[in-house]
Computed example of a mutant assay.
Amino acid sequence: MNTLIITGAANGIGRATLIKAIEDGYFVIAADKDADGLSALQKEYGAEVLETHVVDFADNTVIKGFIPALYERHSTIYGLVNNAGIYHGKSVYAYSDAQVDEILNVNLKALVYLSKDFAEREMQHEAPRSIVNIASVAGEVGSCDALYGATKAAVIGLTKANAWNFAPFVRVNAVSPALIHDTAIYDTIPTYRRDEYARQEILKDPILPSAVAEVILLLVGDAMRHITGRVIPVDNGAYPR
């Protein structure tokens, strides 16, 4: 049974990815600051397939210590899904200094440390491993939330760079969702921006977290073993690029 780390696993895309991963036969290490959400998942799925960690990736100590601590319990881990993220949907002028630091830590700095700490350990095995980062269409075409858009653009750059850095054993790809329904972020996106996303879509079936999870697990797995350094849109055909 391969082991897969999923951050931001208690809700939305992360939760859907956790469920799909367990269905596909993975043992999941789930991390989130939502203790209640993780507890509910732990009760539902059990310790045989799920290990949960209540962590806040806004904390520098957590960012730098999370992966090393896991390897005190696990000799090898197959994959990492960097899903944890923050979106405020507000003007850059409305950000406090603390919120700037928080979003940079959660959306970008955590990915830097978790990815390099994972790859450094797994490259020693000289066997196929996989990292999937969650970017966003906002990182490609811009966002009304400048900090969110900037961090997601950086995630795309980090994905491409780390595909080189971690080759030939650790593949690194990104999924770039657009308007995803039934998530906390959806309710935070300003109405005019949601309408714009919807107008751009050429497929009209609303995208749910489970649909994004299917793409994530496809990228994680062996079927995509020849794919690295790529950004895969899940956007109903919006914003062709």
Rank of each mutant, 00 (worst) to 15 (best):
V112T: 03
K109Y: 02
L111G: 13
N133Q: 13
G142Q: 11
N133P: 13
R121G: 04
V141F: 04
M123T: 10
M123Y: 08
A127W: 08
V106A: 04
M123G: 02
V132E: 12
N107A: 00
L104H: 03
V106S: 09
E120Y: 14
Q124G: 03
R121Q: 09
F118P: 02
E102V: 00
E102H: 07
G142P: 12
V106W: 10
K109R: 15
I131D: 15
E122G: 07
G139N: 08
I131H: 08
S136M: 05
L114Q: 12
V112G: 01
L104K: 02
H125F: 15
E102R: 12
S115F: 06
L114A: 12
A138N: 14
F118L: 07
L108N: 01
E102L: 07
V141K: 02
E102N: 09
A127Y: 07
L111C: 05
V112E: 03
Q124T: 10
M123L: 13
G142S: 11
M123N: 12
S130C: 10
D117S: 14
A119S: 13
R121A: 08
H125A: 13
L111P: 03
V132F: 12
N133H: 15
R129C: 06
V137C: 04
V137W: 03
E102F: 04
I131V: 13
I131Q: 09
V112L: 13
E126L: 05
D117C: 11
E140A: 15
Q124Y: 08
E122R: 08
V132R: 14
A138L: 05
F118M: 09
G142W: 13
G139D: 01
L104W: 10
F118T: 03
E140H: 06
L111V: 04
G139V: 06
L111D: 08
R121T: 09
R121I: 03
V137K: 11
I103F: 02
N133E: 14
Y113V: 00
N105Y: 01
P128D: 14
H125V: 01
N105S: 12
L104G: 01
V132D: 10
L114Y: 07
I103L: 06
A135N: 06
E122L: 09
S115C: 03
E126H: 12
I131N: 11
I134L: 15
I134M: 12
R129F: 11
Y113Q: 07
I103D: 00
S115V: 06
H125G: 00
I103P: 00
A127G: 04
V106G: 09
A135S: 15
A110T: 11
L114M: 14
N133I: 15
E120G: 07
A135G: 14
P128H: 04
E126T: 05
V106Y: 09
E140P: 00
N133C: 13
A138E: 11
N107D: 03
I103A: 06
I131L: 12
I134T: 12
L108Q: 00
F118W: 09
V112W: 07
S115Y: 04
S130L: 09
N105Q: 12
A135D: 06
